[in-house]
Amino acid sequence: MVADIGARPAARRGRVKAAGGALHGERRRLYLPLLLPALIAYLLFFVAPSIFGVVLSFAEWSGLGTEFSWVGIANYAELLSSRIFLSSFLNTVLLTLIVGVALFLIAVAAMVALRTARAGAFIRSAVFLPFMISPIAVGLAVSFLFNPKGMVNSVLGLAGLDALRQPWLGPELIFRVIMVGVVWSAAGFYVVLVMSAVDGIPPSLYEVARIEGASLIQQFRYVTLPLTRDMIAIAAALWAIAGIKTFEIIIAFVGTAGTPPLEARTLAVEQYLRVTGGRVGGMAQLGEAAAIGVVMTAITVALIVLSRRIQRRDRLEWS
């Protein structure tokens, strides 16, 4: 998603010209009719509304027929003085960082051990599976595992570990349980992503390393890691984009009837509650909700820029 379009074989560039001048003109005439429907739909219903969202964050407006007034940075000031906003902001950053570190460690472990593992392809498909499944279903299943009478507590009871039985979904632990659920549903994707980069490394490099007596850990340190840095940077950016938006799995823990406890609210949840006025009734706060959207975009961009720093400066070339 943060891909580099410039990194394409340059040989294609001169191709169109080779087809001849008249033909070239005829092909050019087809360009706009094919491109415009998608481009106009994208501009009109995606780009323009997104920009309008930024405008709205500096205004107070509840839609057509109501009065539009500029309020400057009042929406942002309101957010900054709101304890609920600050805690959901903190939760979002914490979730993105903690789950991000967990995903990174799991991906590294997989890079070390999965390349040479037997049935590696099968393992990859099986760990990828939860990523395909609706986060609502994942949230429902995980919250059921952890509910007071659920599987986790029953198993702990059966194992004689009654001391470890917890009210997992209580305010103190629920956010940690949610993070576990997020890791479970996302980790397979990142494992497969980094492994696709590992697959691109010529096997001869590992052979040389083996002949020179490098252990698997050393092979990881000196061959795999330097050659997969770009993919790790991409994975980090993708996780930043996805992690900031964490929403469905949290809603699935509480259902639509209630509102998630403060301890488990992310920015996306908080914005949803403000857009809809909350399920318990109340006024929609669109200006502030738009400001939350702008804040989330800013965090995402900042994290993408940070993740770009992981990338190599020089482009890899192998024949």
């Binding site: 509304p49 969202g53 949803y272 857009v275 975009t297 961009v301």
Partner: peptide, 14 residues
């Protein structure tokens, strides 16, 4: 692809 949906949510509702 890198713009979070939430930047789009309020205009979308309107």
């Amino acid at each position: 692809m890198s713009i979070p949906f939430q930047a789009f949510a309020v205009p979308m509702v309107l």
